[in-house]
Design a binder for these strands. Structure first.
Lengths: 192, 192
DNA sequence: CCGTTAGGCTAACGAGCGTTAGTTAGCGAG
DNA sequence: CTCGCTAACTAACGCTCGTTAGCCTAACGG
């Protein structure tokens, strides 16, 4: 593991625990095993370090979702896949994922609109699947934007409580959420 | 409106926009129409001001929920009522509600566990209703804690996007969420 | 009409912040 | 062996932070 990666990881933990403004470069340095000044050999500054964490996390989520959706056509299959992907991602990267949610407005304007664009791009995946479901599978969705946001948010929350050694694994949780979401949009056909 | 209230309100806006650590007493003072030092005539310090905002917000939500649930017995009625209450509260107090979510760990330990206790108390309302629904109305809930958190979270999110002049009012949104939640836990009986 | 008090103010303190400058140790390549 | 580069270090700068001390003034009760 390179020093760059170690810095990014300890910074993620600290941004999660204390927020962006509550985290100091001196503390990041201490946990990464160096002085604050040495961090500047790896990143140009605190804001850029933060931005890279958030942007890379969000970008990776989008890319993984697109890859797993590729080639799938059935709306139910697509929604289940996207939810599974979303839940797994938020379980595997819970700290970075929550930081990207909660600390969004600690990003300075240019970085911020950059990330907001990525998030819109991601949310569009949910909206598209819901629209497809309406058009081709008879789903009943009172408001695509509201329901898309509801589903995504409820799945995001998994990052807040999930722990590895639970009686549930990530796949189980994803299935619960997917069943729940589908029963909300699809006629009884989808229910067990 | 007293000066105390004005300070509390502008502080809420700032904590929302910039987070606890990103907000300065000088800026709170400026927006409240006084110097930072004068704030100490009204609150003993920044942390106490913040704690009061979060604690009073959460306490008020619990009290209102309890009041509206009192006397209602049918699980579906209770769940719809709680969701309606939750949505309205998060629409009417969106800034304070989101601050209470996102900035929770800016609370110092004694204040923090205080608020965490309040939140547990509130979440228990959801869990109890789901359990009652299982026992008395044949609801199917794979995991009470997971589903309770999912429902609450998806409703909480309303604070993130709702605006007064929308084509939807708070009651409409609450109904969408309640229908969605009920179709996820109740057999087909509850569907229109 | 005066004493008290509530609620502003200015000035300042000590601490900690992000960041920069300049230096140095280690190490692989020529 | 030595050059040059990487990545660490120490020291410090300028700034802002939360907070305190002390002062001033307007309003009000006796």
């Amino acid at each position: 593991m390179t020093a760059d990666e170690r810095i990014r990881d300890v910074a993620t933990v600290l941004f999660f625990e204390r927020g962006y403004h509550g985290t100091t470069m001196r503390e990041i340095g201490k946990r990464a095993g160096m002085k604050a000044a040495s961090l500047y050999n790896h990143y140009p500054g605190k804001q850029e370090l933060f931005h890279r964490i958030v942007a890379e996390t969000t970008r990776a989520l989008i890319d993984e979702a697109r890859a797993r959706l590729a080639g799938r056509d059935d709306p139910e299959d697509r929604l289940r896949t996207l939810i599974d992907c979303h839940v797994r991602y938020h379980v595997d990267h819970r700290l970075a994922a929550r930081v990207s949610e909660d600390q969004l407005n600690a990003l300075e304007p240019p970085n911020r609109s950059d990330v907001v664009g990525l998030r819109d791009e991601y949310e569009r995946l949910f909206k598209q699947i819901l629209s497809e479901g309406q058009a081709r599978a008879g789903w009943q969705v009172p408001d695509v934007a509201v329901v898309a946001s509801a589903i995504a948010t409820m799945c995001t929350q998994v990052a807040g409580w999930f722990r590895e050694d639970d009686r549930l694994n990530a796949g189980d949780v994803a299935r619960i959420y997917a069943d729940f979401a589908l029963s909300g949009v699809a006629p009884a056909t989808a229910r067990a």
